[in-house]
């Protein structure tokens, strides 16, 4: 249960926390983009340095961010193994039976791992340093220009905020149902395939029906409080850029320019 704290908002008082969530979202997008600029190891070091700096400025303990990697370790190992085995370029450096490993494979895999590391840590810093409510408002405001093309940005924002609101509730329900089924002899860890399927069903079906009830109740409550989709409504939470945000934007743009320069001239 403790693992669910990953990426959870930590209300601290820091430079990064005080930034406008839109600024942080845009910076995250810039970093995600920057990762794909072919600027080699120099570029990656620059980006990692930038992330380290944000981490320091956010006052978030590094161990909390590292925790975010735990559930992804299996996936990363899987990816790395596949990569190492599939890529057959460069010099052969190891061979055992049908397993052949090339140096390019290792290098590429390292690149991928670093990219994942960058993306995950950057998004973790974003979610840990931003109040989810403000983040939703930020997303809504950033999507607003798409409204001109009939994109239902308000509905999307409402959906995100409701999803965020109900994640803890659904986790709690899941826990309750698992406990109830465990008491009826379900073993979620071990068992044959058939038993496993049964175990999963015994969790999914009740969870689905509970969520449906929840959705129905929620819809009634929203309707009863006067919510009508697509109708105009005011917003309690508002956002304002201030001077810090403009500075951070500038730094972000400079970072990208620097990486592009590196990709052309330094390698």
């Amino acid at each position: 249960m403790n693992n669910f704290t990953i990426g959870k908002y930590l209300p601290l008082d820091s430079f990064v926390h005080k930034l406008d969530p839109r600024t942080k979202i845009i910076m995250l997008l810039l970093i995600m983009g920057a990762v794909f600029i072919k600027s080699g190891w120099i570029g990656y070091f620059i980006i990692l340095g930038f992330i380290a700096l944000s981490l320091i400025l956010s006052k978030i303990k590094i161990s909390y961010v590292l925790n975010a990697f735990k559930p992804l370790i299996m996936m990363m190992v899987f990816l790395i193994v596949i990569n190492v085995l599939v890529i057959k370029e460069g010099n052969l450096i190891f061979s055992y039976g049908f397993i052949k490993i090339y140096d390019k494979a290792i290098l590429d895999t390292l690149y991928i791992s670093v990219r994942l590391l960058i993306m995950i840590s950057a998004s973790t810093i974003l979610t840990m340093s931003s109040n989810p409510l403000d983040l939703t408002v930020g997303i809504e405001k950033l999507l607003k220009p798409l409204g001109r093309f009939n994109f239902p940005y308000e509905d999307v924002a409402m959906m995100i905020s409701i999803a965020l609101r109900f994640i803890p509730t659904i986790i709690e329900e899941t826990q309750k149902i698992m406990n109830a089924q465990r008491s009826r002899g379900v073993d979620y860890e071990e068992g044959k395939i058939k038993e496993k399927i049964q175990a999963v069903l015994s969790l999914i079906v009740p969870l689905f029906s509970t969520s449906l009830n929840m959705a129905e109740d929620l819809a009634s409550a929203m309707e009863a409080r006067g919510y009508i989709p697509q109708e105009p409504r005011t917003r309690y939470r508002d956002l304002k850029y201030n001077i810090k945000d403009y500075i951070v934007f500038l730094i972000g743009v400079l970072l990208v320019v620097l990486l592009v320069w590196v990709s052309y001239y330094a390698i």
Partner: peptide
Amino acid sequence: VVFQFSEQQLF
């Protein structure tokens, strides 16, 4: 164990 709102466990 009969949990609270045990009807939730039916599937």
